[in-house]
Nucleic acid binder design. Structure first.
Length: 197
DNA sequence: GCTAGGCAGGAACCCCTCCTCCCCT
């Protein structure tokens, strides 16, 4: 891959199924040429149609009170799409989780869509440590890479994006140092179409 | 670590189906 603009993002949802669960939080951070830009971020709660299951509130710390006055998914995803612009997305397990939620939400709420390229940061971990023999969860990456999670609220999209951005920076650097250019699979997903300014 | 779904990949087998694991909330 050549120098490029990435948007690292993370979703919190009401469960694991894109078909039946909903997004309740989106956070993202821009990354230019392998460096995360701490000041260039996106964040929003989302007011879901369904209530938040208690175990999700326990897991994420996100409660009904947090989302009560938040905008619905349509405007949030359009704002997010605007923030992403022409960048390539990257999320951890995004191929099987986050991007499916984005696609399902666009379909469920009949949002006009545009194609968006994305990477899955799991791929960077697989390149560095091999798919077998290592675990590749975000906590495992943070531990292996020596990233300090102190002061970071894990399972909150802002906290997870903060950790993932550091992890992607380090993995990107290591992969480039070892292999030159990362041979990372580029996938294609969707985001809402945003009217041209 | 509890709850949920489902892909990806491997095994067994002959090309689909079944099974198990990973990873996300």
């Amino acid at each position: 891959m050549s120098a490029q603009e990435l948007v690292i993002f993370d979703l919190e949802t009401t469960g694991l199924s894109p078909a039946g669960d909903e997004i309740i939080q989106i956070a993202a951070m821009r990354m230019m040429d392998g460096r995360a830009i701490q000041s260039d971020t996106f964040f929003s709660y989302v007011n879901p149609v369904q209530s938040i299951p208690p175990w999700i509130s326990f897991y994420t710390g996100i409660t009904e009170k947090d989302v009560r006055n938040a905008p619905p998914i349509g405007p949030v995803l359009r704002d997010f799409s605007q923030f992403v612009g022409g960048a390539t997305l990257i999320a951890h397990n995004g191929h099987r989780f986050d991007m499916r939620f984005l696609a399902a939400s666009c379909q469920r709420y009949q949002l006009n869509i545009r194609p968006v390229p994305y990477y899955d940061s799991l791929g960077l971990s697989w390149i560095l440590w091999g798919r077998q023999g290592y675990r590749h969860g975000l906590d495992d990456l943070v531990n292996r890479l020596g990233i300090s999670p102190t002061g970071v609220r894990r399972h909150d999209a802002r906290g997870d994006v903060h950790l993932l951005a550091q992890a992607v920076e380090k993995m990107w650097e290591q992969v480039c140092a070892t292999y030159g250019q990362p041979n990372l699979e580029l996938y294609h997903g969707v985001l809402p179409l945003v009217a041209a300014a």
